[in-house]
Design a protein around this nucleic acid. Structure first.
Lengths: 344, 344
DNA sequence: CTGAAAGCGCTTACAG
DNA sequence: CTGAAAGCGCTTACAG
């Protein structure tokens, strides 16, 4: 016989059964050291007998916490998503936070935004899933926020965790120059305003500069992190610049389009032209030839973002910028001839 | 100046500002038709002026709902995960449910289970992320549950959504027999007790039976939905059964291991031996040769599971079993010689 | 159509 | 170490 209408026992039922006050039950739940050993034992068995589970929403209302972390993204897709979420979930659950996921597509005209102070203790914002205005508004509401793969807009100082793009790109392009003696190296940009792409381009420029190779606008192609744009851009570039002997793709998806365009144009990779990418997507070892690229530590990004957010929630502060290291993955599309790698 | 300590305005603040009672605000929020047009307008502008957002936990406590759907899984990984989650998220958010994700790894000794009545209106359980006992307990607590890719244990009648495995497998094996004239067809099982694998094997048997090909235990190999187990199994099988001229892999991951084992053994695919898989993972078109397989409608599974769960929550009932259709994807590893498919 | 009031199940000063 | 009581911000019969 419980006192509530629903079949779940409440803290009151446990208190009655244990012969103590609800305050004591609450203390036992939140800070067992506050109750005597005897009482603790009584409470424990009463809880077991009733199969009691505290109702989190009641606790949340009383404490003004939600114990939930939010993750905001534009779309659930792509190779990065699974490892990133895996990283986030692992630290969230280790720290006893629920994880709330939301996609920013349809922020239509609902009264409450999908994620905010009302249902979350803090949120992670992936790429530009939120407009600057929305971000500003949330930030001004004092909601703890951590940005992922995107630095904050001008005036806002919001912590950000992302990856090291420039130096890896520079090393990769340097590899093309020094090891494979490429001099006419193209670059395929990512979408407009994409920061990863920006820094990858900076690394590319730096490598060329260091080797006194002049930049050529004609060797910079438009990309969108997608295959078909890359394919078209590549076709145009090789027509205009037949001397091009390497292409650094802003990402692996583009690299796939590039490989196809080159095949169609009768160019051999890597004999005639080197192709390298960025991201190390799962399928890159299976491409023909296997793609030389840069591995981004995406799961680590997820973990770090969640950790920083929790730190921000708990202490009110955390590092403003965390740059996670990336790593060259040399396969064959650059011109190297490794022993065949086992894919298992 | 708000009445609460936190900086967020409460329903009380809005009521004061609008010069009405909190009940009216609440009504406006939940069922605007209950308030007069005039009042509605006043309330609306008061809400806007204060930038009011209802605190969901308070509402949840009052209504005894959480407005959240839970998703329970063993691990965040694999090709299926992203599309499944995408499907789930799309219907959850369309129906205004929050989505809570939890991994069952560390159900250690915490007081509350990660997902349950206390934080969720209902949950989806993927594969065997919950023990039969846990499932039973949750089900007895009257929590709405939908199983994904797994039928309920004996006594429990819990709705389930999964895919059609048997007939697709049968068609695929029939294709090997009728089109490519294979007679010594091996099968690589998935993990013990995996239902998908069980039905795939049934389809395999059925196809053989229909063509009066005797089953041979020696042609059934052990797999675990992973590459290296499949590789080892295959090596053993072809040694013992050099006459084997086709292998139906319980899944695509295994198919990768099989292809490697066959390459190492000097067998040509598909000339000497056909290889087909199941799942249609993203990288299968890039394998050598491109893999013939079966496409599972994973995003659809996610959508359907979420829809059924919501229906169950709202009406108290839904279909006990939903079987989503699958589709053959013929590429080259079976022996077919299609025109090369553009990968864009 | 609207308001006053009780209640949802917790937590947490405040006393003792 | 423990209890009584107020409060968290909503919703919802109950009256009117």
């Amino acid at each position: 016989m419980t006192s509530s209408k629903s079949n779940s026992p409440t803290i009151r039922d446990v208190a009655r059964k244990a012969g103590v006050s609800v305050a004591t039950i609450s203390r036992f739940l939140n800070n067992p050291s506050l109750v005597s050993a005897d009482t603790a034992e009584t409470v424990r068995s009463a809880m077991n007998a009733l199969n009691y589970v505290p109702l989190v929403v009641a606790r949340n209302l009383a404490t003004h916490k939600t114990n939930a972390l939010g993750l905001m993204l534009t779309e659930i897709q792509g190779d990065f998503f699974t490892p990133m979420l895996k990283g986030i979930e692992s630290v969230a659950s280790a720290e006893n936070y629920d994880l709330l996921i939301s996609t920013s597509r349809k922020t239509g005209s609902r009264i409450a935004p999908p994620l905010g102070k009302h249902n979350t203790d803090g949120i992670m914002v992936f790429l530009d899933s939120l407009s600057v205005e929305e971000l500003k508004k949330l930030h001004e509401s004092d909601l703890p926020i951590v940005l992922i793969h995107q630095t904050p807009p001008d005036s806002l100082s919001i912590p950000c965790v992302t990856i090291e793009n420039k130096s890896a790109s520079q090393r990769l392009v340097t590899h093309l120059i020094e090891v494979h003696h490429r001099r006419h190296i193209g670059f395929l940009r990512g979408p407009e305003n994409n920061e990863d792409s920006y820094w990858r381009e900076m690394g590319y420029q730096q490598a060329l500069n260091n080797h006194h190779i002049p930049l050529s606008e004609g060797l910079i192609g438009i990309g969108c992190y997608d295959r078909s744009t890359a394919r078209k851009s590549t076709t145009l570039m090789i027509e205009a610049h037949p001397e091009m002997d390497a292409i650094f793709c802003g990402d692996d998806e583009s690299a796939i389009g590039v490989l196809i365009a080159l095949r169609d144009a009768g160019k051999k990779v890597p004999e005639d032209i080197s192709v390298v990418g960025f991201d190390d997507e799962l399928l890159t070892p299976y491409l023909t030839p296997p793609l030389t690229t840069v591995r981004a530590p995406t799961e680590e990004v997820g973990k770090t973002a969640a950790s920083k957010l929790i730190q921000l929630i708990r202490t009110g502060a955390t590092d403003l910028l965390t740059l996670l290291p990336t790593q060259l993955v040399i396969r064959r599309s650059c011109g190297c001839t490794e022993a065949p790698v086992s894919l298992i």
